[in-house]
């Protein structure tokens, strides 16, 4: 057969996906007499691979702890061992309650998380729809862009006095700070996602003459979802970053207040523990959202 192509068709040619028999399947059914040995070998290899994957991270942590020990030795900060022991004691009873200013670490974490949840939740409820509108209507985008550029770089804590003045109370003021500092990434990423929807998908919608609702649910929303999830992830990051500082200033039960309280008690071990707790919870939040984002990623390979 001779196919005459008029132009440089090869530029568009997709790589041909060859059908290759899978040969990577684990050992065929017929296992030789020395089966036990081969199974052992295989598990050995698996364990070896896991160790090899974890090794760099473990080495990094070990060096970190080592440096910490040295610095602690020189400066009088609590070293890794005393901190570890103190942490064991602290976490043996995380949910005690002795008066309003002396509660277990568990309560402090939960209260901080709930503030972040409320502030961030409000920001999502307002920020994501706003992002859609800004992305969809150029006029709105031009209208909002100076406001966003002006307010976004403001340091989160600068909003605290306004919150205190308006709400006359610490709790809503802290939530307000979380809200105002975590709303921007969601607005911006959602709006960018909307403007980046490939024209092809919109053309499909136009040719089919889908209703506005169908366009939104079947085309716009799924196309924007990955961008939106990035915004959500960044927002949670910011919110968690800000909560400690906000609580230091507003008081009440919470990780930030706890750090400040322990500083007043000069319990440096607990301050270091708090730093780790904040870091680990931030890491977990990030991983959780990454996992969620991956579920929504339609992976157009």
């Amino acid at each position: 057969m001779n196919v005459v192509s008029v132009s440089k068709e090869w530029q568009k040619a997709e790589p041909k996906v060859a059908k290759i028999e899978t040969i990577s399947a684990p050992e065929p059914a017929a296992i030789p007499p020395a089966a036990g040995v081969s199974v052992l070998k295989r598990y050995g290899a698996v364990i070896f691979n896991i160790l090899r994957a974890l090794f760099p991270a473990a080495l990094g942590l070990a060096i970190f702890v080592g440096l910490w020990a040295i610095v602690a030795h020189r400066s009088g900060l609590p070293g890794p061992m005393p901190t570890w022991n103190s942490a064991l004691k602290l976490f043996s009873d995380p949910f005690y309650q002795r008066g309003p200013n002396d509660q277990g670490i568990g309560w402090n974490v939960l209260r901080s998380l709930s503030r972040v949840g409320m502030g961030f939740g409000l920001a999502a409820v307002i920020g994501i729809p706003l992002g859609f509108l800004i992305g969809r209507f150029a006029f709105l985008s031009k209208m909002m862009s100076p406001i966003i550029s002006l307010l976004r770089p403001v340091s989160p804590l600068a909003w605290l006095p306004i919150g205190l003045y308006v709400f006359k109370e610490a709790q809503p003021a802290a939530i307000w700070v979380i809200f105002i500092s975590s709303i921007w990434p969601m607005i911006i990423n959602t709006a960018v996602g909307v403007t980046r929807i490939p024209q092809d998908y919109l053309n499909v919608a136009r040719v089919l003459k889908l209703s506005e609702w169908k366009v939104f649910t079947k085309v716009l929303f799924p196309a924007v979802l990955p961008y939106m999830m990035t915004g959500v992830r960044l927002s949670i990051g910011v919110a968690w970053l800000v909560i400690v500082a906000a609580e230091m200033l507003t008081g009440g039960v919470g990780l930030g207040f706890w750090v400040w309280d322990e500083w007043n008690n000069l319990n440096v071990e607990h301050i270091i523990i708090a730093i780790f707790v904040v870091g680990i919870i931030g890491l977990l939040l990030e991983q959780l959202l990454l996992l969620l984002a991956r579920r929504f990623d339609y992976a157009e390979k």
Partner: peptide
């Protein structure tokens, strides 16, 4: 006057919605 389902299109790059 505009696109409509009486004129179906097969696009150059298939244009399938990847999430479906």
């Amino acid at each position: 006057a505009g696109p409509g389902p009486d004129r179906a299109v097969v696009f150059q790059n298939h244009s399938l919605l990847p999430w479906m």
